[in-house]
Amino acid sequence: MQSEALEGGFPDAPVDAARAFRAAMNAMARPGRIETLAGAVPPAPLSAAAGALILTLCDPETPMHLAGGLDVAGVRDWITFHTGAPLVGPAEAVFAVGQWADLQPLDGYRIGTSEYPDRSATLIVEMPELAPQGAVLTGPGIKESTRLSLPDVAAMRRNAALFPLGIDFFLTSQDRVAALPRSTRVEDN
């Protein structure tokens, strides 16, 4: 294990994680809203926001899937050291992180069951950028409607159609995060 795996965690975990969670919760509660998520310095190519989400939410109880370019030794070691989350394939993952293309196909992840819709995966999608433009979002958490740059509108609509089952998404770019839960209705602009 490289020594950099030991670095880049939250300097003051209880407080940093509390602040990061607030940003993550605000994002999930208000789909489309872009929040800042700082505090973590993960190894490349993991973004600061994705790193903070992982430190805040993942631990030995949450199997994780690293997709594509993120499945590299530096990231694996960092996650293992800081969270202890077991690294697994998509089907067992509680969290998965990667670029949109690498995370495909979406039907490989858990979407919950009708009795336990919460037992579904949360995907952390690394985006080149995040902007309040593009697809039109409506639904719980959104006053009237809002816009967010989504990687694939059709796929998000198919996911929303599964409600109350489905996957929930965090979209991350550098130190910014937005979320798209399954409850959000998505329209092309």
Partner: peptide, 27 residues
């Protein structure tokens, strides 16, 4: 005791539940 009493692992577990609760309102 830890900040806000609960240990970090417990807080993470609760935080995950809150996020799923927000994703499936009322469930």
């Amino acid at each position: 005791y830890n900040f806000a009493y609960l240990d970090e692992q417990t807080k993470r577990m609760i935080r995950r539940a809150i996020l799923k609760g927000l994703a499936v309102p009322g469930y």
